[in-house]
Amino acid sequence: MKVVYMMGYDVWGGDLTPKEYVTMCNDSSKYKRGKWYVIEETDTKELLSSLIVYELNPSENLIVRGIGSIATPLHLRHNGYASILIKEVINELEKNDNCNNYFLFSDINTDFYKKLNFIELQPSKQKYKDSICMYYSKENDIDSINYEIPNYF
């Protein structure tokens, strides 16, 4: 997990040393609640990108997941690995869990997620200044469901 955690160190590590950051991640109850997914290079087994998926409390009998901590090692960014991983995880969750409602919080330019068909929630529904809540579903328009926007996960 150290390799997975360190993918996001440059963005989320703040003033922590790498060792302190990995310890914080290892101790995180939030990280223990989710399920991690990674994409790796077939031959070398090098980890190329990672993310975590959280089960969110359903409403209206909806199956809802939160996607978070999407990261790629700095030297591998802009190669499409995170996009591939997001698409594959959504495909797997749709197939295996019948899930078709996803939220994420973008700490980067939202255009990245818009290319994957996520939409920004309207400004009145946003809960945070620096992280934009986004939604994706092949079946439901965000305005057609009655679901409380999740807190940052």
Rank of each mutant, 00 (worst) to 15 (best):
K115S: 08
K138Y: 03
I145F: 02
S137M: 08
Q126H: 10
D141A: 04
E120F: 05
N140K: 12
M134K: 02
D130C: 05
N151M: 04
I149G: 00
C133W: 03
K127F: 11
I149D: 00
K115Q: 14
Y135I: 02
K114G: 07
I145N: 01
I119Q: 04
D143Q: 15
E120L: 05
S144H: 09
N140C: 07
Y136N: 12
F118I: 00
K115M: 11
Y128Q: 07
N117E: 13
K114V: 09
D141E: 14
K127R: 11
K138I: 08
F118H: 03
N146R: 11
I119K: 02
I142F: 15
Y135G: 00
E139W: 04
K125P: 00
K129Q: 10
I132N: 07
N117P: 08
M134E: 02
P123Q: 12
S131Q: 10
Q126C: 08
K138N: 14
K129H: 07
Q122P: 03
S131V: 11
L121Y: 06
N146T: 10
Q122E: 15
C133Q: 04
K115A: 07
P123N: 13
N151D: 15
S124V: 14
D143C: 13
N117T: 12
L116N: 01
Y128V: 08
S131P: 02
Y136V: 02
D130A: 08
Q122V: 13
K127E: 07
I145H: 01
L116G: 00
Y147R: 11
M134T: 09
C133A: 15
N117H: 14
E139K: 15
I119A: 10
K127I: 10
L116Q: 04
D130H: 11
Y135C: 02
N151L: 04
I119R: 01
I145E: 01
S137F: 10
S124H: 15
D141H: 06
I149E: 01
Y135T: 00
Q126V: 03
K129W: 03
E148K: 15
Y128M: 06
I132L: 08
F118A: 00
I119S: 14
K138T: 13
K114E: 14
M134S: 07
L121T: 10
K138L: 12
L121V: 11
K127V: 06
N146G: 13
E139G: 04
K138D: 12
K125N: 14
K114T: 11
